[in-house]
Design a protein around this nucleic acid. Structure first.
Length: 294
DNA sequence: AACCAGGGAAGAT
DNA sequence: ATCTTCCATGGT
């Protein structure tokens, strides 16, 4: 067992990050002790890292711990990237000064980071499964999917591999209460990866525009899913999923509209957030999360 | 009971 | 290109 303590060179609201991660029942999170266990898939196999928050939003300190001695530096790099600690969020906040989101991002929700899903493929599967479902049922579906076809290591769930998903039948997923369409999307997309027609690691190196073009061609992946993969699978900073019902409702409420904004109106009001629209997306979702949780 | 949900495909215009 | 319609199923 090794541990590594680090002071972060940014503001960072770790309490909020944990609360958000705790919404997914597959995550092993303790909000009181402020830690989360993270599944990490390396060429050498499956590893688990415990991440604990020891600091505050303005002076964040984290501690990483794992039993995987031989991969220590790789695991640290990996988690550092997942939580995007290389990003200075004060710089991002400065970009929103003078915009219509200034008070939300700077005073109400400072230190709201982009946090990546734990694996690019898992992120894509989760995003497809979450299409057009309320969050409660969406999480139930992904939990069933992973508990049925994934694997548990040191108490932490890993999503199944593309090979494993490619080999299951539509009927198998129907039994978990997937719709026929959703079962096709999940399995067929996994088959594309197995067949080498879709390479997410390679895709993660390409521009947002190229990624969108590639992903949207795939049956079952529309704009919303592609944008969400860029945001949570690749950690990109300029995504605003306009078709997202949560974003539309958040904009409606925050700007006091009597209806949801049109896609054109969203384009207009979000121009000044570029090229960091992902942070706007996150704080807008955050307003709705607090509305729901009270 | 009706409407909604952190959409997408297919068809029509 | 942009707009309907249908799909599907649990939550509220």
């Amino acid at each position: 067992m090794w541990t590594e303590k680090m002071a972060l060179d940014t503001i960072y609201d770790f309490d909020y990050v944990l609360k958000r991660l705790a919404m997914d029942p597959l995550h092993v999170v303790d909000l009181d002790e402020k830690y989360i266990y993270i599944p990490v898939l390396l060429p050498s196999g499956k590893h688990v890292v415990r991440l604990t928050s020891l600091g505050t939003t303005t002076q964040p300190v984290v501690e990483l711990a794992s039993d995987s001695l031989e991969e220590k530096s790789k695991l640290i790099d990996h988690v550092f990237d997942l939580f995007r600690w290389q990003v200075n969020l004060s710089d991002k906040a400065n970009h929103f000064k003078g915009t219509n989101l200034e008070s939300l991002f700077i005073r109400r929700y400072p230190g709201t980071p982009v946090v990546k899903e734990f694996h690019p493929y898992a992120s894509l599967m989760k995003t497809i499964i979450h299409q057009q479902l309320n969050m409660a049922f969406a999480h139930t579906l992904t939990r069933r999917f992973v508990e049925q076809y994934g694997s548990k290591v040191e108490g932490v769930w890993f999503y199944p591999t593309p090979e494993e998903v490619a080999s299951i039948s539509y009927e198998d997923l129907r039994q978990l209460q997937f719709s026929q369409r959703k079962a096709e999307y999940v399995i067929n997309t996994s088959r594309l990866i197995v067949d080498g027609e879709l390479n997410l690691e390679q895709l993660a190196q390409e521009s947002d525009e190229q990624v969108m073009k590639t992903l949207v061609k795939i049956r079952g992946i529309g704009n919303w899913t592609a944008e969400n993969w860029l945001l949570f699978g690749a950690g990109r900073e300029d995504l605003l999923p306009k078709k997202d019902i949560g974003i539309q409702n958040a904009l409606k409420h925050y700007f006091g509209m009597d209806r949801k904004p049109t896609l054109q109106e969203i384009d207009d009001m979000s121009k000044e957030w570029m090229p960091f629209r992902s942070y706007a997306t996150l704080i807008l979702w955050r307003t709705m999360e607090e509305r729901q949780m009270g």
